[in-house]
Computed example of a mutant assay.
Amino acid sequence: MPRPRCTRRIISEIRACSIVPFMDDDKLARELFAGADLVVLESDEAEALRLADLENLYQGKAAQLMGISRQTFGRILDRAHRKVADALLNGKALKIEQARAPCLERPPFNEKFKSGGQTPFLNLEETSMKIAFVSDDGTTISQHFGRAAYYVVLTIENGKVIQKEKRSKLGHTQFSGLHEEHHEHGTAGAGHGFEPGAMERHASMAQAILDCKALIVGGMGAGAYQGIKQAGIEPIVTDLESIDEAAAAYIAGTLKNHIEYLH
């Protein structure tokens, strides 16, 4: 005899009651979505959803088909799940970026980048993205993620920075009484930042940059590093001080990720 169905407790307020399929008619879409917040699902995120949720493939196989690592696929899929859930549950409009298929959003990893600990070259000719930095003065990269004053977010199109903005950032002053970061160096997953409540704190810090592909810092704890990754953002620890210099290196694919600096 099958087990009886348990009562489900639902505490979320669902604000959407329908979903409209993707339309090529921009005018009609604007009329239907007038005044609605917009969530943009990028082409790689839609592909990750198709492979994992529709084709039911293991992440390793899906990553192989997309020409990326399993870890990168997992970050893309997490980001896609979060966007779709946000649109469905919060009543936001979901826009799917179109891409000709089959296509390459960016070229495969270069072998020297695979072995050299560098980020892969990004083909920005047909895409745009945002990357974030932690900073105290707007021009240099802060050496301490938790205490940095704000984020500097760059919008990149066609391999060029077209917009620069400052965003408010939660820091240690907003989490009074909680364990603060220390400066001892260690290895990822073995340092501080894993105390109770730390992951929730890091998730709150990441809320302001969920639309960014990467976060570039001068230093951070191992727990914060893992927290940013779980938010679907690639954390990069650099020894460069200038935001402009680090941005140019990121675009060129020569920005090294010094995870040995995690503490």
Rank of each mutant, 00 (worst) to 15 (best):
190 A>Q: 14
222 A>D: 05
69 S>G: 12
11 I>D: 12
57 L>R: 06
182 H>T: 12
87 A>L: 13
76 I>W: 05
22 F>L: 06
134 V>D: 09
162 I>T: 14
227 G>D: 04
7 T>K: 03
164 K>P: 13
195 E>A: 06
236 I>L: 14
76 I>Q: 02
16 A>V: 00
141 I>T: 04
168 S>L: 05
177 G>H: 10
211 D>N: 06
96 I>G: 00
225 Y>K: 03
21 P>F: 01
59 Q>Y: 15
148 A>S: 12
246 A>S: 11
257 N>D: 15
139 T>M: 03
128 S>C: 11
172 H>G: 07
141 I>F: 11
170 L>V: 03
157 E>N: 07
57 L>V: 08
68 I>T: 01
159 G>R: 07
103 C>T: 15
171 G>C: 08
23 M>N: 12
13 E>S: 07
189 G>K: 09
111 E>W: 12
14 I>E: 09
121 F>K: 09
48 A>P: 13
228 I>N: 01
219 G>F: 07
74 G>Q: 07
44 D>K: 00
126 E>T: 08
64 Q>P: 02
179 H>I: 10
110 N>V: 11
27 K>T: 15
82 R>D: 15
189 G>S: 06
116 G>A: 03
213 K>I: 08
33 F>S: 03
50 R>H: 14
35 G>E: 15
82 R>I: 02
